[in-house]
């Protein structure tokens, strides 16, 4: 990162240098502490949910092999995170391209359902229209209490979709709802830090699915591994 001034915009700064300097020092310290907390939470979440992620990746990759489509959804900033994950599966440069779609992409559909039957049915109504048994529903809620996310899972579970939920805080109603095949709870009360950890978990899930869908990724032979990883992987993979 570097600060590149356009000069003519910034040169007339004239204020109490001491106070601005103190504020900037505070901001630097705050940024460092927040970044460290983000890093800690991502790492602890990845480690705590490691085996759950493995199991979910296994189930998701089996569904993709059988021709499933992945539907993602969430509200507000979580809707943008859901869009990010759908794009990660569908068009990221790092892996096989898989059928995935975000349910917040079309404002006409969203406002029609919101206006006609209520926001709490915004996602379930679309899933009734689009989804088939065998597909995958993946929803995001930092509180775990988003009504339309819970309703979407309730609707799709009994229709035979695989249900994967991401929550924060204590998991909220989502964690206790009994409608999730796989539930990932980031134990934090900071919305931004939860979103960052959820992005890391989603990314890991995608990478593991990619690995399982790659012919030599499911049970890699020792001779085909990268040299640097050989010694670490001499042990059986599933030691706990």
């Amino acid at each position: 990162m570097s600060h590149e001034s356009t000069g003519f915009l910034n040169r007339c700064v004239d204020t109490d240098g001491h106070d601005v300097g103190a504020l900037l020092s505070d901001l630097v310290a705050t940024a460092g502490a927040k970044a460290a907390e983000s890093s800690r939470l991502r790492r602890s979440s990845l480690e705590a949910l490691d085996s759950d992620l493995e199991q979910a990746a296994q189930a998701i990759s089996e569904r993709f092999r059988a021709g499933a489509c992945l539907y993602t959804f969430g509200n507000g900033a979580s809707s943008t995170d859901a869009a990010c994950v759908a794009a990660l599966f569908a068009r990221s440069p790092g892996g096989a391209l898989l059928p995935a779609r975000c349910l917040v992409a079309d404002p006409a559909v969203l406002t029609a359902t919101g206006n006609g039957v209520g926001n709490e049915l915004a996602f379930s109504r679309q899933l009734v229209a689009f989804a088939h048994a065998g597909d995958i529903a993946m929803g995001y809620s930092t509180s775990g209490n988003s009504e339309n996310v819970i309703r979407a899972f309730q609707e799709t579970r009994h229709r035979g979709l695989l249900t994967v939920g991401f929550a924060g805080c204590d998991g909220g109603r989502l964690a206790g709802s009994g409608v999730l095949d796989h539930c990932f709870v980031v134990r934090s009360h900071s919305i931004h830090r939860i979103q960052e950890a959820q992005a890391a978990l989603s990314h890991r899930l995608w990478a593991t699915v990619q690995q399982r869908l790659t012919p030599d990724g499911e049970r890699p032979a020792v001779g085909q591994r990268e040299p640097a990883a050989d010694q670490d992987l001499a042990e059986p993979e599933e030691v706990r």
Binding site: G94, G95, R204, R225, A229, L233, E237
Partner: peptide, 26 residues
């Protein structure tokens, strides 16, 4: 357990170069 976790970590990183260690982030 943590060693097994790290071992799988190494494999993933070397296979896909996708999972940068979060240390770099902070």
């Amino acid at each position: 357990r943590s060693d097994a976790f790290e071992a799988r970590e190494s494999e993933r990183v070397s296979t896909y170069r996708l999972l940068a260690t979060d240390d770099a982030l902070s």
